[in-house]
Design a binder for these strands. Structure first.
Lengths: 216, 216
DNA sequence: GCGCAAATCTGCGCACACGCACATTTTATG
DNA sequence: CATAAAATGTGCGTGTGCGCAGATTTGCGC
């Protein structure tokens, strides 16, 4: 499934994609994100500037992609990998937490770099949306493909929840005005993710129960 | 709450904003969306092109805004307007359906115009995200401000569900490949919205029940 | 009314996103 | 292996998004 289609083309495409995002990240770390022109990235990757925009539709996307690349696919795979008798909600939650819990130390610097620039933060948070499609497929397979509509809504909601969690995480201290009682501005990412997804658990459970008895 | 801040400034701002989006819509209908430059819109609204981008961050946004303007605020208001003893899920669902059920016939032409251009479709679908913030406030008020985190996730999920519904609605007939059994490509928008939000109902119920007993 | 501070408008400049048409490469077919 | 068909890479041109700094307008206290 990874390398569908004829091989050589897709292989080259992925190669340039990787080259582009790694070049983008390297340059951003070296000179700072503001001193990196698209032309430089394209140059470093050995393609024309025009080709760059065939792969990424914004400059930030390439930088951010270097950190979040294929996380979408890994989340979906992780969901699919859970045993069938595990609750859907747990499968999704654990898969997400697992893939967003970063054991890599190199990413510390990158995340620090990202959080400083508002544009990059936004792009980073927005990558959560990317998990929607592959996650929908994974959920659909677990639910037996019944009601594709439900599947899409669930996947989109999960993505939205992840987005909210990420947003809360990278927020320096935006100062929630007159926040009634106690708000945890930014705890550990796994905790934030669990909390966010816990809100959706009832919906996931209900969908699973519904899928148990396909109705007609 | 509508006109907070000092009046004259905000008033003028809203005036130019309205002028801009109405000019954008009018010109788009007259000459077709592709034959409208940003300069034209700014010109017609009597502001500089630079100012245009202080209000809308893309050309499509202004056009689309003419149809979806303030829908976000109306949805939030409609949620708040429901009696307190109505289930949160019902309040949200009905508010959304009510605000997206369009009695206006003029919008038929506009929607037709929008669905033809992919860029405009995307911008239109994306407007669903705009309801997130105001909806979050409305939900928070209903839930008694307990756990702002939950509130945000719920609002984001509802917005995501609306987005999915809109997406399915404007899709001409994208041809879901090998769609197992029966898929309704595009029914009536209210039905699509109800179906999408029904998926989230359990989560909304749970949050409401949780808010009933604030815990500590 | 007066004048100061803050918010907004605007011109300038740069980099960027993307449609288009064409050159180049890859795949499929005989 | 040749050749057609399809997909991808590239240069060009245009319109656009936005940071910046100065002019302009609005709000507020006296």
């Amino acid at each position: 499934m990874t390398a569908r289609r004829t091989g050589l083309r897709e292989q080259k495409k992925q190669a340039t994609r990787v080259a582009l995002r790694e070049a983008a990240l390297r340059l951003a770390l070296e000179r700072g994100p503001d001193n990196v022109r698209v032309d430089d990235i394209a140059d470093a990757a050995g393609v024309s500037p025009r080709t760059y925009n065939n792969y990424f539709s914004s400059r930030e996307q390439a930088i951010v992609a270097a950190v979040t690349a294929e996380r979408q696919a890994r989340v979906a795979a992780a969901v699919a990998a859970r045993p069938a008798d595990v609750r859907l909600a747990d499968a999704v939650t654990e898969a997400v937490v697992e893939q967003y819990t970063d054991p890599d130390e190199r990413d510390r610097d990158v995340l620090l770099l990202i959080t400083t620039r508002p544009t990059l933060r936004e792009a980073f948070v927005e990558t959560a949306t990317a998990i929607e499609h592959s996650l929908a497929s994974a959920i659909a397979r677990r639910l037996g493909d019944t009601e594709a509509n439900t599947t899409r809504v669930l996947a989109a909601s999960v993505a939205a929840a992840v987005r909210v969690a990420l947003q809360q995480w990278v927020q320096p201290a935006a100062g929630t005005p007159r926040a009634g009682g106690l708000v945890v501005p930014s705890g550990s990412l796994p905790d934030l993710l669990r909390a966010a997804l816990a809100t959706l658990t009832p919906a996931l459970d209900a969908a699973e129960a519904q899928a148990g008895r396909p109705g007609a």
